[in-house]
């Protein structure tokens, strides 16, 4: 009788463990549109920080949710169908990459944007190439 109970408890624990593991394995990606902002900064200062000391800037900004404001220099659609908006400079500025699947609200906010507009964009900082790269971006009203 006692051994039977132990077996049942063990089996339950095992099943729970399996469920936890399965949940972890299938954990969804973060929703970056609703993610809270870690750092608010102007795009020119963000670029300067990376230009003057990339390592220091990496420590400060990498993986953080950044809210930048700045002037749109270029709007581009890649051949993969992904939208990107360059602030400050097309080559050496801040490049904000958007996902191909966006919410209706985002699409609405994006469709009126044009070169020269001032805009606030939120995104995760992935690092610095010739430009500062933000990914998983969304426009902030």
């Amino acid at each position: 009788m006692k051994t039977k109970r132990i077996i049942v408890i063990l089996a339950l624990l095992g099943a729970l463990g399996m469920m936890a593991a399965l949940y972890m394995y299938n954990k969804p990606h973060k929703n970056y549109e609703t993610q809270k902002v870690d750092i608010t900064i102007t795009s020119t200062v963000l670029v300067k920080d990376f230009e003057s000391n990339e390592q220091e800037a990496n420590e400060k900004y990498l993986d953080k949710m950044i809210l930048v404001d700045g002037q749109i220099e270029k709007v581009a659609l890649s051949d993969h169908g992904d939208l990107s908006i360059a602030l400050v400079d097309a080559m050496f500025g801040v490049t904000c990459n958007f996902n191909s699947q966006l919410s209706d609200e985002q699409n609405n906010l994006l469709k009126d944007l044009k070169v020269g507009d001032n805009v606030k964009i939120k995104g995760r900082c992935d690092g610095y190439l010739s430009d500062v790269r933000l990914t998983q971006c969304s426009v902030v009203k």
Partner: peptide, 30 residues
Amino acid sequence: AALIKSFTFEKALMQEHFNENYMESDNYPK
């Protein structure tokens, strides 16, 4: 030049392991 953090995986957990354990993208971002 490619940023390590810009690689996307189907599974969030794999992406996490890739960045944190294997590629150490905080120390080697590109």
